[in-house]
Design a protein around this nucleic acid. Structure first.
Length: 554
RNA sequence: GGGAGAUUCGUCUAACGGUUAGGACAAGGGAUUCUCAUUCCCUAAAUAGGAGUUCGAUUCUCCUAUCUCCUACCA
């Protein structure tokens, strides 16, 4: 029987989780779920220097928002609950800071077996060597050539090594990269690769100063202990893959070594380099899933959630950034992605993020939503906007009203937070009129026509939304107000007929009259259809808004 | 400087070694319309460059260029 798939997402709590990180988590999740495996969340907090309070919570909340729920992770009980309450979960804990006691023995094991050594060079000495090399236009590498000239257990007598280990606490354990070897590696996305070990350097595995492992050691040990079957991570790790291969080999864990897949990076929409926090501010789109306030600087970064993106849209756009299904389908639910996702179709090259496409994705999901649901989402924003306008919000709008409004405007928006600007006129009368439009349309002729139309509306017998509510008609289906037989469609058709036939009969210019009316109804000459506006605001309000213009002149 | 990875329309991407190099976003144009938007139709737009292998190369090999990442007692 094949091993159960176990993959992990292993972020460091050093700040807000970047959207690229969310993508890595997503691909891991999809891969695991497709194979009926486990998705594990491990926190790699071995760098106490860079720990940022709140970052871990942020990661959890971001993943939860996306619907990416870990099967195991920092919230997992250290004791198995299902099978046997007393049987300890061999994979817990999932925070590296809580596993710190584990790593030293593994590092020592490597020393014992000749795969690693103690190094006593101080940070100052090493940086001095680096500076000297740089001055000579070279690079200092701690490797097979230089290690024999430096202070370590390969060069010092055993007594001295022991003395230094006892008396100092700045020593480290370094991996001894073998000389003149070729490491042959395989990547699930990139295929075969080879690296000459002479180009590698002796990485620090463990530090006496803080008794903590570095990434490389902790990562390999934990992946082994947690029985990880595939490592799906960012391409920034590709250069350390040979080291990781060598580590598995040194530990004698080659049989159970996970398979690797390195995901290409997310690039800036413009210019050079990878997508960074600054790009979002500069180009006006979020780089983070959720809004993030830097606890040290107080700096605020916007988030997809707060910008009005639906998590489904965010997940969808992330999935398609660097992966494609091989078909022309672009819209996928998380469940569908689990079905069709595969590492074989992950793109090797870096993907430039495109904010326009991101908006398009949200638009698609917005359109799929029922108007009743949109109305629910819109209401709090509406109330807030009206308060900001100083409008009277005591007369609340019915659910039916909002639902019908949403049905009308959902095609015009990418986000619910655009609804107010689009539909403002259906809730409040304009506070001012656009100067340019006034100049263009408020000719003596058009004003006369508008007055006539006011009378026409006042004396007409078409019905509007208010009549529908007054008659307490139960609309057969709120979702179908664009249906030609719906109450609204019939009303709007009637209004349209009345106005156009009147204008035609009078031989007025259609555009001039309509735009003049729109100016009085909304304050400018762009936007919703006249019959829709009249249907929603009603006859009384329509007439009121026309005469309001004339009284504004006085 | 060293090492690794990458390179198809502006962007995301598709194309058993054989296609008029396809789709989506964005752009431009048109139709519909009282405006704006929607919708529909149309247009323009790419294999980084050079060698080679091959009857035939976007696809394989090599060289060059460019980009990205790594080059910490960070992850």
């Amino acid at each position: 029987m094949a091993k159960q798939t176990r993959v992990r997402f292993a972020p460091s709590p050093t700040g807000a989780l970047h959207m690229g990180g969310v993508r890595t988590a997503l691909y891991n999740y999809l891969f695991a779920k497709q194979r009926g495996g486990k998705f594990i969340l491990r926190i790699e907090d071995t760098d106490s220097q860079r720990f940022v309070p709140g970052a871990e919570e942020y990661i959890l909340e971001s993943l939860a928002w996306c619907g990416i729920v870990p099967d195991e992770g920092i919230e997992t009980e250290p004791y198995r609950i299902a099978s046997n309450k007393s049987e300890k979960n061999p994979h817990a804990p999932y925070r590296q800071s809580e596993r710190k006691h584990l790593y030293r023995e593994y590092a020592e094991l490597l020393v014992k077996n000749g795969y690693a050594y103690y190094a006593f060079d101080s940070a100052e000495e090493l940086s001095k060597l680096r500076a000297e090399a740089e001055a000579a236009k070279q690079t200092f590498i701690y490797n097979y050539e230089s290690r024999i000239k430096l202070k370590n257990s390969l060069t010092l007598p055993p007594e001295e090594v022991n003395r230094l280990k006892e008396t100092t606490d700045t020593w480290t354990i370094r991996f001894k990269i073998p000389e003149n070897q070729t490491v042959k590696m395989n990547d699930l996305i990139r295929g075969e690769m080879e690296v000459d070990t002479n180009t590698l350097d002796d990485k620090v595995l463990w530090k006496a100063a803080d008794q903590l492992p570095t990434y490389h050691l902790a990562n390999i040990v934990d992946d082994h202990l947690m029985e990880i079957t595939e490592v799906i991570r960012g391409a920034e790790w590709l250069p350390s893959l040979p080291l990781h291969y060598l580590l598995y080999k040194a530990f004698g864990w080659e049989d159970t070594m996970p398979r690797f897949a390195h995901l290409s990076l997310l690039l800036k929409p413009d210019g050079k380099g990878k997508l960074s926090k600054r790009d979002g501010d500069r180009l006006g789109f979020p780089v983070f899933p959720l809004k993030w306030t830097n606890p040290e600087t107080g700096e605020i970064s916007r988030g997809y959630r707060e910008d009005g993106y639906y998590p489904e849209a965010f997940v969808n756009l992330l999935a398609l950034l660097g992966w494609n299904p091989g078909t022309e389908q672009e819209l996928f639910t998380l469940e569908e992605l689990v079905e069709v996702f595969g590492l074989e179709r992950v793109v090797k090259s870096g993907a430039r993020f495109n904010a326009d496409k991101a908006k398009w994705f949200n638009q698609q999901y917005l359109r799929k939503r029922s108007s009743a649901l949109l109305a629910k989402e819109f209401r709090p924003l509406l109330i807030q906007a009206m308060q900001e306008e100083g409008a009277n919000i005591s007369d609340t709008f019915s659910d039916r009203y909002l639902t019908e409004v949403c049905e009308l405007i959902k095609e015009r928006a990418h986000f619910v937070n655009e609804f107010w600007n689009i539909s403002k006129a259906l809730f409040i009368a304009p506070a001012a009129y656009d100067d340019g439009d006034v100049k263009k349309f408020c000719t003596p002729e058009n004003l006369e026509h508008a007055k006539e139309i006011e009378q026409l509306i006042a004396n007409s017998n078409f019905k509007t939304f208010q009549d529908q509510e007054a008659e307490n008609l139960s609309a057969p289906n709120h979702e179908c107000s664009n249906n030609p037989n719906s109450y609204k469609s019939l009303c709007c058709h009637q209004i349209e007929e009345l106005l156009t036939s009147y204008i035609k009969q009078k031989e007025w210019k259609m555009g001039a009259v309509m735009n003049t009316l729109r100016l009085f109804f909304t304050g400018n000459t762009k936007g919703l259809g006249i019959s829709d506006i009249i249907y929603f605001i009603g006859k009384k309000e329509a007439c009121k808004r026309i005469s309001a213009y004339f009284s504004s002149l006085a």
